[in-house]
């Protein structure tokens, strides 16, 4: 085994790329859950974003338009979940699973003509000055635009939840919808907006897969990334920066295990391929053993104004 062949700078750089789709979807889902709604349809929204983003980018030649269309399409799809759970008071877990089915089916119907095509992809965008720094530069500042945007989004969500009135209202709705309603907030409307935002983020994550990370369209290409994103939100105890840590940790272990294999380590491959999941569990156990749980109190409960 020659671990010397693993270059830590490149490792960090590629884990950031590898984690970005999960990060985008997870930060959106975190906002949804903060509002007290559990949307298990992330996988379905991601793959819809992947196919729509790809199709639009191919037809217009612009990856930027692709991302925008992906966000919009997934957000619209998520509204079907919103209408069902918020107006028709359907069960959120089941509706989310239905959304996944719909997304998977819809995407492969839309995607048929785009199989095997190549699309324009995002160029790397080294940040001036920062990118030239030794070690840190190639690690953190020579990525494409979406990597920076995803981190900016985490920061924005953190600041938004913590410092703005909108964030306060969102959290209030998630903690106790009855109290928020009594205070005169439009619970349903706020939740719909959160769901819309979550859908848009999932769409961006999916489009990042099909336009940058892979880049191509193939049926079922998200291959469970949406589920990992859901798990990351729980892992993060509904805290934005921990979502970032969780996504990078998961992406990091995934990339690292492949690097260890490539370096010819003696560790059995089956344990290496389990490692991202086992390590996520382990870290979560350590966090929870310290006694902190941050689930919004109203998470997953239906709200009806005339209780």
């Amino acid at each position: 085994m020659d671990l010397g062949t693993i270059n830590p700078i490149l490792l960090v750089a590629s884990l950031m790329v590898s984690a970005t789709p999960i990060l985008l979807a997870a930060i959106g889902e975190m906002v949804v859950e903060k509002s007290g709604v559990l949307n298990l349809g992330v996988e379905g929204m991601m793959i819809t974003g992947a196919v729509v983003g790809f199709a639009v980018a191919v037809n217009t030649g612009s990856p930027g338009l692709g991302f925008a269309a992906a966000a919009l399409a997934s957000a619209l799809l998520s509204l079907s979940f919103g209408v069902l759970t918020q107006f028709l008071l359907s069960n959120q877990v089941a509706t989310g699973l239905g959304l996944t089915l719909v997304g998977l089916g819809l995407s492969s119907l839309i995607g048929k003509p785009y199989e095997g095509m190549k699309s324009p992809t995002l160029p790397d965008l080294p940040l001036p000055l920062l990118a030239d720094m030794p070690v840190i530069g190639p690690m953190l500042f020579q990525h494409d635009l979406m990597v920076y945007l995803s981190i900016a989004l985490v920061a924005a969500v953190w600041a938004g939840l913590k410092f703005t009135r909108a964030g306060l209202i969102l959290r209030a709705v998630g903690e106790s919808h009855d109290a928020a309603h009594a205070l005169g907030y439009k619970v349903v409307r706020i939740r719909l907006m959160a769901i819309f935002f979550g859908g848009a983020c999932s769409g961006l994550g999916g489009a990042y897969l099909s336009l940058v990370r892979v880049p191509q369209w193939t049926e079922g290409m998200t291959a469970g990334a949406g589920w990992i994103a859901l798990a990351i939100v729980v892992f993060a105890s509904w805290k934005p920066w921990r979502v970032l840590i969780g996504a990078y940790l998961f992406g990091g272990v995934t990339v690292l295990q492949l690097n260890l294999q490539a370096a010819g380590t003696r560790l059995p491959v089956e344990y290496l391929s389990m490692s991202p999941y086992l390590i996520t569990i382990l870290v979560l156990v350590i966090i929870s053993a310290r006694g902190y749980h941050g689930a919004p109190a109203s998470l997953g409960r239906p709200f009806h104004a005339s209780h």
């Binding site: 079907s80 069902l84 028709l88 008071l89 359907s90 069960n91 089941a94 509706t95 699973l97 239905g98 959304l99 996944t100 089915l101 719909v102 997304g103 998977l104 089916g105 819809l106 995407s107 492969s108 119907l109 048929k112 049926e219």
Partner: peptide
């Protein structure tokens, strides 16, 4: 029929069941 349309169909069925359940 493409396999995907069946998946979509199942998703619809689930959605309508949940929607009418109200």
């Amino acid at each position: 029929l493409p396999g995907a349309s069946i998946q979509l169909f199942q998703g619809m069925l689930l959605f309508f069941l949940l929607a009418t359940d109200v």
